[in-house]
Design a protein around this nucleic acid. Sequence first.
DNA 1: ATCCTATCCTGGCTGC
DNA 2: TGCAGCCAGGATAGGA
Length: 295
Amino acid sequence: MPELPEVETVARLLAPRAIGRTILGVEVHWERTLGGSSARDFKRAVIGAKIVALHRRAKYLIFDLRRDERPAGHLVGHLRMSGRMHIERAGFEPGIHARLALALDDGTIFHFIDVRKFGRISFEADLQRVFRRLGDEPLEKSFTAERLHALLLSRKRRLKPLLLDQSVVAGLGNIYVDESLHRARLHPLSNSGSVDLSAARRLHAAVQKILRAAIDGEGSSFDTFYRTPEGKPGRFQARFRVYGREGKPCGRCKSPIVKFTVGQRGTHVCPTCQPYRATLKPRRRSARAKARRAR
DNA sequence: ATCCTATCCTGGCTGC
DNA sequence: TGCAGCCAGGATAGGA
């Protein structure tokens, strides 16, 4: 599923074809793609606007628009489970899952294709409306191990649901959380409030290393959904150590990977490398326990 | 504050 | 071969 590395890949590969283009026409095949606005309003907002920048925030793609050299809002895209974006020459056949097409001024056409119809491309005059709920970007300089540690301590939640919460850390999804927790040797059910600084450092390093490697590999494609704007699968799935590897040997210790559900998400764990302890930080021994030990 | 469930969707898979 | 039923999954809303 598209997470930060996949969205980053789409942004990078789409940018050279999108930036500088003016939108000349719009075809809406599935109106709900527009996230609530009508096709009529959407067309009015974007036709004649020029795409001047394309960037990523969390799992969102943002196309900055200008009209008469003045800022004119943004197209905000989210691929959710199965969305794809392509910019192709006229004549390209986008298939039955095409949801939205934008005709560009160089004769190419931007296609949004989405089997499961959860993806969205909306027009937003103000980005704050969408972005105010988003937490830290995990690859930004300001996202340090100490910062992550503070975030973990500020909540009392299980590690995995916390890392999936976009208002805490923005951009991680099911795959990269499972891979990161495994690399950091942390159990997804561990209490976030009990993670000590050294564990937070391991997790921080794991998240950044895995995200960077996945961006290098142009994302992960383990099913038919995610493809780059060039139509190619990603390559990082070859380096999964736990995700989708139930019953197969752990990449580190060869124990069979176990799958179970956490917060309604399929969750993959090496029971040897990621032992479950409800509390990670050793509890201060009570005076009574100390006395017992001393005897 | 946190957790849990339902919702949105479809294609692919399982089992009969 | 066909068909019913279940499942995956990101984000969000609402209830416990």
